[in-house]
Design a protein around this nucleic acid. Structure first.
Length: 284
DNA sequence: GAAATAATTGTT
DNA sequence: AACAATTATTTC
């Protein structure tokens, strides 16, 4: 897939300013994409921890169909046929890339800021109120409710009232795929995106954000029973390996094996401030 | 058909 | 390093 995304040669005179986008277009024309239709939940072949080396990769796979938007959702056009039981628009995937000043990321528990009102220049400023439309509406529709049965069900909205279909709810849970952007020197665009699993929207509200404009916020909780989330806590190195421990950012332990391995295994911590070293012993 | 979206490339 | 320009799909 990465190979196919390399820039095409037809732009001898004009440089392709966005080879990644050109590649997307060509692959769609050639029907060379994996999942042309949007899907809810996991995609076969893309497991938790999968790394995408650009937004464009996610687009051609069909994992997240925008190379720009943070929120991918199924629009009203999906409300017929296979998905006629669902309410739309319905969010299916989000990218947390730290562009919004009001985001808060605690790995298993995330406060995600809705889209819109952004000044789009990369300085993380909100300049207008957000509205409950588009992706923001789609995320709200994903909201899960806690019922007396202690089970979480997704409720169906008609207007502002949560209705139960049949009784008051539908036994159909609609999780959201969560992707995180990370800095990554070995990726050609300087960052890498990891699939961190399915999350459920458990709460949403509107508030005045840091810049004083209304933003919509969504609390997402990671579903249980998924592979342990490591991508946010561990600095993997791929491609170019550091030549000395001095090159490693956030080093907290030079060898977590304590000499049991021939090659020392350093550990880093870029999350805690100040960094906390791993505790406990490794048993042989 | 316009509007919305912010990642990547290009330029200073 | 910081900033500006460009980008094209999805959505209604």
């Amino acid at each position: 897939m990465v190979q196919k995304e390399k820039p095409s040669e037809d732009g001898d005179k004009k440089k392709a300013k966005r080879p990644d986008l050109k590649a997307i277009t060509k692959m769609f024309e050639a029907n060379a994409t994996m999942y042309p239709e949007k899907r809810i939940g996991d995609l076969p072949g893309i497991s938790v921890g999968h790394r995408f080396y650009s937004r464009a990769e996610m687009v051609v796979v069909g994992f997240h169909s925008h190379w720009l938007n943070g929120i991918d959702y199924m629009g009203l056009s999906y409300s017929k046929g296979e998905y006629h039981n669902y309410t739309f628009p319905l969010a299916v995937a989000i990218v947390i890339s730290g562009m919004y000043e009001d985001d808060l990321d605690n790995a298993e528990d995330v406060i995600y800021t809705g889209q819109g009102g952004h000044d789009l220049t990369g300085n993380k400023r909100q300049i207008r109120d957000q509205k409950l439309e588009r992706g923001n509406l789609a995320l709200k529709v994903c909201l899960w409710f806690k019922l007396a049965s202690l089970s979480l069900f997704r409720c169906w909205y008609i207007g502002e009232q949560a209705q139960v279909r049949g009784k008051n709810c539908v036994e159909q849970c609609v999780p959201v795929r969560v992707v995180r952007g990370h800095e990554c020197a070995s990726s050609y665009c300087g960052r890498v995106y990891t699939y961190d699993g399915l999350y459920k929207v458990v709460q949403y509200w509107a508030e005045k954000g840091l810049s004083g404009f209304t933003v919509f916020k969504y609390r997402l909780r990671r579903l249980e029973g998924q592979p342990i989330l490591t991508t946010n806590q561990v600095q993997f190195s791929y491609g170019r390996v550091p030549q000395s421990v001095a090159e490693i950012r956030g080093l907290v332990c030079e060898d977590i094996s304590g000499g049991q391995e021939d090659v020392p295994i350093p550990a880093t911590n870029l999350v805690d401030d100040p960094p906390v070293a791993p505790s406990g012993k490794l048993d042989s």
